[in-house]
Design a binder for these strands. Sequence first.
DNA 1: CTTGGAAAGTCAACAAGGCTGACATAAACT
DNA 2: AGTTTATGTCAGCCTTGTTGACTTTCCAAG
Lengths: 171, 171
Amino acid sequence: MAENGTGMPPGHGGESLLFLTDDQLRRGIEAMFFAYRGFTADPDRILAEHAYGRAHHRALHFVHRSPGTTVNNLLNILGVTKQSLNRVLRTLIEDGLVSSKVGVKDRRERHLFLTDAGKELEKVLSEAQRKRMRAAYREAGPEAVAGFRKVLLEIMDPEMRKHFDQLKDSM
Amino acid sequence: MAENGTGMPPGHGGESLLFLTDDQLRRGIEAMFFAYRGFTADPDRILAEHAYGRAHHRALHFVHRSPGTTVNNLLNILGVTKQSLNRVLRTLIEDGLVSSKVGVKDRRERHLFLTDAGKELEKVLSEAQRKRMRAAYREAGPEAVAGFRKVLLEIMDPEMRKHFDQLKDSM
DNA sequence: CTTGGAAAGTCAACAAGGCTGACATAAACT
DNA sequence: AGTTTATGTCAGCCTTGTTGACTTTCCAAG
């Protein structure tokens, strides 16, 4: 036992592989768990006031991010079934936060946009979330932030990484 | 408009606050979202084979981490209601993965332990999760990992941070 | 010693948000 | 004309969260 997870005996590897020990990895896993709770806490509180959930927030975020995106594209980004997404999208459309427009080139497709009310809520939600991230970034400093981003990129599934990189273009 | 989120006009602040722009923060938020999906993907697959969910994984993790912990302590760490936790705990106990022992000092309390079967499953789950984290850490390098941990700490709610730090002691 | 209250468990009911399967429609492609 | 694709919708199921009400056990303070 006393497995260090590096596949090498402890004490070997001159480049100091101590950050790859099982204990260090376990701490990172726990940090991700606790941090994600904080990450979603502020938007969750606001959403609850509007009788919405995290699923609505995600839809608002990505429609805001890629105005005119199709339902299918959103499906791939969010990684849920169309039935799940549709339920959320339908309420957002009914409530006048999202508008759905038939495609011009391919009229089977629906292109999604935020209405003014949708932009309003998205802004409130994202500003609450950014506020916490901004404070965290400021405390941690630019180099820590660079490392943070670097590790997160590596944790992603390749397909999710692809979506993440594609969003970059429209920034 | 063109709000940069720093509360300062763009171009000011000699210490390069570019990493605090709203766009940078938004990228960080998206990275967290996509990365968390990857973070949970491997355990989720294994759990599905056993007809368990993420809630079972969390319970197994923290009971493993703090053997003999009480239900109440677990409640605080996980941040759910006792009814939610109880449902999960009950199935784990019925399935012989967790054992619950009446406290000696305070006999109202139940102290939770993993059985051999519970330790087995916890190991499979955590090794799957660590495998991905290990690869990510290795790719990103020790300095990035330090930054990653630093930012995650800052994102946590103070109360969650407290729990996180308390776990450290028993490591 | 009695009683108040904390810790834990249980039952019931409900909601969000995942899932599958089946089916409809419209439009594009071959 | 027939097939595939994009979308929407209905029905039903599961997990995991919630609230509220109630019981049992048992420590501890009056």
